[in-house]
């Protein structure tokens, strides 16, 4: 049994690859159970009247695309279906570009026009100071240009979207991975401006962020890629997330088996050591 502690790590890596490849190649379609944070976010968006402005923070880089992209896609399907209007902002250098690539095809699918139905302000340097400036004037925090550098004066939506506050926007959501991210939004957008806030976060940050949902500071959450899968089910679109959730389920099973085997090996070794 003690041999379990000495499994060649290379074998573990190889099996890891096999498990993940199976999830990518096969469509398992494991059942997705909708959890309260995702349901709460869906219900909140569902209740927003058509034409309401939604602020989307794209606060992540390429490293987190596999977890957060499916959330963004599922969310935008819902938002455009509901005829809501969107302003995208990013505190991360690549965030604006990632947002543009993801939203453009969805907007086209729902016949949404750039400048009238949605605007991408792109990356704005300055972290929390910039976000704070947005709460008094979006024109100022964006230096009056969108992600391509065109003047905001020519975009009709920006006549309506003056400042990031509860009188102008119905909801703010940040898809984020770290700093700057949800902490800055909680302090500035939720606590100070009292705007309804939601969080699209990585699986690994769920235990850290969920207390803010439980305390009512967040109206809803995407708990990792699983949250995206749940949202896809709720919105009724087929995307990448359900597949990714399948992969996670397989991986969880595989890791659980490894943890059990490792612990059996550890306990046997310990017992052998005390017996001596």
């Amino acid at each position: 049994m003690q041999a379990l502690l000495k499994i060649d790590t290379r074998l573990i890596y190889l099996l890891t690859f096999v498990v993940v490849a199976v999830a990518v190649l096969a469509t398992l379609g494991l059942p997705v159970r909708v959890t309260p944070p995702t349901k709460a976010l869906y219900d909140f968006v569902e209740k927003l009247p058509a034409g309401t402005l939604v602020w989307v923070g794209m606060d992540y880089g390429p490293g987190s695309k596999s977890e957060l992209d499916p959330q963004v896609v599922a969310f935008f399907h819902h938002v455009f279906k509901k005829d809501l209007k969107v302003v995208i902002h990013s505190m991360w250098t690549m965030g604006g570009k990632i947002g543009q690539e993801l939203v453009e095809p969805i907007a086209a699918q729902y016949g949404k026009e750039y400048g009238r139905d949605w605007v991408n302000l792109g990356y704005k340097p300055g972290n929390e100071t910039n976000l704070r400036l947005c709460t008094s004037s979006i024109k100022e925090c964006a230096a009056n240009v969108d992600h391509l550098g065109s003047s905001l004066d020519h975009l009709p939506l920006m006549q309506q979207a003056r400042a990031l506050d509860k009188n102008t926007f119905g909801l703010a959501i940040t898809f984020n991975t770290g700093t700057p991210g949800i902490r800055e939004y909680l302090a500035i957008v939720q606590a100070e401006k009292q705007l309804a806030l939601a969080d699209g976060t990585l699986q690994m940050s769920v235990p850290e962020d969920i207390p803010f949902f439980q305390s009512g500071q967040l109206v809803g959450m995407f708990p990792g890629v699983r949250g995206a899968a749940e949202y896809e089910v709720l919105v009724g679109v087929k995307g990448a997330a359900v597949k990714a959730a399948d992969g996670q389920s397989l991986a969880a099973l595989y890791v659980a088996i490894l943890v059990i085997l490792g612990n059996i090996g550890y306990l046997t070794a310990r017992r052998a050591a005390t017996a001596q």
């Binding site: 890891t16 690859f17 993940v20 490849a21 999830a23 990518v24 490293g63 987190s64 695309k65 596999s66 977890e67 990585l202 699986q203 690994m204 940050s205 769920v206 235990p207 850290e208 990792g224 890629v225 990714a244 992969g247 996670q248 991986a251 969880a252 890791v255």
Partner: peptide
């Protein structure tokens, strides 16, 4: 938290695979 982080790493790997 440990379990969530491990699953997150798997999602990253899945993206690459």
């Amino acid at each position: 938290a440990f379990g969530n982080t491990v699953l997150f790493r798997y999602t990253l790997l899945m993206g690459r695979v």
